[in-house]
Amino acid sequence: MAATDICWTGCSAVSIAPRARFEPFDRAVYKAAAREPGAITAEHRWYQTVGQDIQDLDTYPKPAAPVLGIGGISTPFLKACLDRYARNATMIEFEGTGHWIAEERPAQTTAAILEFLRQP
């Protein structure tokens, strides 16, 4: 299976977290930032390069360092990518989370990262 197949197959499973998980203030800050000149254009141009980024992954060596993957709704996609592109990966799934895991479960995310960093 090509890298593009892995990545695009998984991306179809990604969804946006329900509005209830974000405070009104946070939504207001995001909306204000999106209204800035060029904000949406810059974001879209970044995504336009994702196809090339995926192709480039096959040209890079797998990192020797341990890698931590924290997934929510996109866990199958993330796991497939880690299995293909990392030698020493640890995968954690936070069930019931959407796309913004750190914002949805900040304490749990922090604890997982700290635990991972404590490993020899």
Rank of each mutant, 00 (worst) to 15 (best):
V67E: 00
G69V: 05
L68N: 15
K79M: 05
G98M: 07
F94Q: 11
E95A: 13
I54Y: 02
C81I: 00
I70Y: 01
Y85D: 00
P76K: 04
Q52H: 08
K62M: 13
I92L: 06
Y85W: 15
K79D: 01
D83W: 02
G98S: 13
C81Q: 06
W100L: 15
D56N: 14
T59S: 09
P63C: 04
E93S: 13
H99T: 05
V67L: 04
P66Q: 00
P61E: 07
I101E: 02
V50A: 09
P63F: 12
V50R: 08
S74R: 07
T90C: 03
Y85V: 04
L68E: 09
F94P: 12
G96I: 01
R87T: 15
G98W: 09
Q55K: 14
R87C: 04
D56A: 15
T75P: 01
Q55W: 10
G72H: 07
G72E: 00
G72C: 07
A80P: 01
F77L: 11
W46Y: 08
S74W: 03
C81F: 14
F94Y: 15
V50H: 10
R87S: 09
F77G: 07
A102D: 09
T75I: 02
L57S: 07
G51Q: 06
I101M: 04
D53I: 12
R45F: 05
A89T: 01
I70W: 02
T49S: 03
E93V: 10
A89W: 02
R45K: 01
P63Y: 11
T59R: 12
F94K: 13
E93N: 10
I70V: 13
D56Q: 07
P76R: 10
V50T: 13
Q48G: 11
A86L: 03
R87Q: 12
R87F: 07
P66S: 06
L82T: 06
H99W: 11
E95D: 14
P66F: 06
F94V: 12
A89V: 00
D56P: 00
M91C: 10
V67D: 00
A102R: 10
H99G: 10
T49V: 03
W100M: 13
R84S: 09
G98C: 05
F77A: 12
G71Y: 05
A80G: 15
G69Q: 00
V67P: 05
R84I: 07
L68T: 15
D56H: 12
P61F: 07
F77C: 10
A86H: 04
P76F: 08
R45D: 05
T97M: 02
A80I: 01
L68P: 09
E103T: 09
E95T: 15
N88I: 13
A64G: 13
Q55M: 11
Q48D: 15
R84P: 04
I101F: 14
G72F: 03
G51I: 11
V50Q: 09
C81A: 09
G98Q: 05
F77T: 04
Q48K: 05
Y60H: 06
V67C: 14
I92K: 08
W46K: 00
T59Y: 02
D56F: 14
